[in-house]
Amino acid sequence: MADDSNSGFGEGVLHTTRGASGKPEIRVKKHYEGHRERLRERFDEAGADALADYELLEMVLFRSVPRADTKGPAKELLNRFGSIGEVLGAPEHRLKEVPGIGEAAARDLKLIAAVTQRMLRNEVRGKQVLSSWTQVLDYCRAAMAYEDREQFRILFLDKKNALIKDELQQTGTVDHTPVYPREVVKRALELSASAIILVHNHPSGDPTPSRADVEMTKLIISTAEPLGITVHDHIIIGKKGHSSMKGMRLI
Rank of each mutant, 00 (worst) to 15 (best):
D166M: 00
W133P: 06
G126L: 05
V199W: 02
T173Y: 10
S21P: 05
V13C: 03
G126S: 09
V185G: 05
G205V: 00
G100L: 02
D166E: 08
L95D: 00
K165C: 13
T230N: 02
T171M: 15
S64Q: 13
S210M: 05
K186C: 11
E76S: 02
D108V: 03
L109G: 01
A145M: 10
V231I: 00
I235W: 01
H232M: 00
S243N: 07
D69G: 12
T70E: 14
E11Y: 04
I251Y: 02
R80F: 06
A224D: 09
V129A: 06
R27N: 13
E58Q: 04
H15K: 13
A104W: 06
N79H: 08
P99A: 06
P99E: 15
L56D: 03
R63P: 14
I164V: 08
A2H: 14
L77P: 02
E41G: 08
S64H: 07
H234P: 02
E33N: 12
K75S: 08
A20M: 12
H234F: 00
M1T: 15
Q151L: 11
M248Q: 13
S131G: 09
K30L: 14
K239W: 06
F62R: 03
T217F: 01
P66A: 10
D44H: 11
V129P: 03
S244D: 12
S243E: 07
L78V: 02
A193I: 01
V231N: 00
V199M: 04
E37L: 12
V199A: 04
L77M: 05
S194W: 00
A224E: 07
A52Q: 14
K29A: 15
C140G: 10
N79Q: 11
R153V: 15
I236M: 01
G172C: 08
V174M: 14
E225A: 11
